[in-house]
Design a protein around this nucleic acid. Sequence first.
DNA 1: CTCGATGCAAAATTTTTGCAGTCCC
DNA 2: GGGACTGCAAAAATTTTGCATCGAG
Lengths: 163, 163
Amino acid sequence: MQSQQTDVYDATETFKEFLNSKGLRVTTQRLAIFDAAYGYADHFTAEDLLESARQIDDSVSRATVYRALPILTQSSLIREVDVGRDYKFYAANKNATTFQAQVICVDCDKIFEIDAPFMEWYGKTVADKLGLEVVTQRLQVTARCQSESKSIACGSAPSSDSD
Amino acid sequence: MQSQQTDVYDATETFKEFLNSKGLRVTTQRLAIFDAAYGYADHFTAEDLLESARQIDDSVSRATVYRALPILTQSSLIREVDVGRDYKFYAANKNATTFQAQVICVDCDKIFEIDAPFMEWYGKTVADKLGLEVVTQRLQVTARCQSESKSIACGSAPSSDSD
DNA sequence: CTCGATGCAAAATTTTTGCAGTCCC
DNA sequence: GGGACTGCAAAAATTTTGCATCGAG
């Protein structure tokens, strides 16, 4: 899933513009990290990203990855996906428009993202009742695929999977 | 909120029975940790729990708290509440029956728990479609109370709050 | 008594930070 | 050339683990 040259290029330009607009410098490391992030078709961790970025520019250090991640998420080109593990996951915002829920399989560690448009309504309703302003929402279903010798494992599941 | 002697006592008995049923030993440290956990009216961290347990039995060590937490959650007397912070929160399962969503205020750090019965249906529907078996679910709304000089702050919010 | 449970401290894990040197603008 | 950025390594912060000792049953 690293072939969409045009998409990646456009996104890279958008990222550069974002950096400029914020007065941040366009460095080779940041570009390597960004391109590595957009090379993923699904979810990745900071450590994954370090490894991938180093394949593009092996001078990238772990510290720079961690320092770049907040910039990437602020640019809305990458989103953080916290699934309750010890470490955080991230994913490129290539086409996410509606609210999405995550289905996390504890057997095979896959993360499926599915549209859950009603979440927007739900969050607003709830927050209004409490007099708060919604910042983010997440709906996560932890599930298992191999618990009862089922024939259907995550690997064979359809739709938009990830990781 | 440490007055409900009867409730705590009953719960302690339930916990002892759980330990026995699992062939685990009833130690003073485990009881101290359990009672400390049930002394909280709302959410607490492992570190909070260590401090409280030590007020009951100051021989309790950090390692024992961390070793006791999985037992407590397995007994269903305590539940884990992961709100995406670096550390985990826990809460005593005193009366939670239906599915609950958390509203987490980033301004004042409060965690509100509200009933969200439709979650059960939702998780089943989604998991069925993927051929998985639901293990847990969580719906969280991150919100803010002071962002626009609103008169309503978390401290004054009504309904079933926590923390 | 026996073996599970504990305390202590060191280790593991993920993320952050101080500092000197680097390189973008 | 100046200051933002980087790499390195040490530090933080939370949780886990090895090991000798303790104590519940």
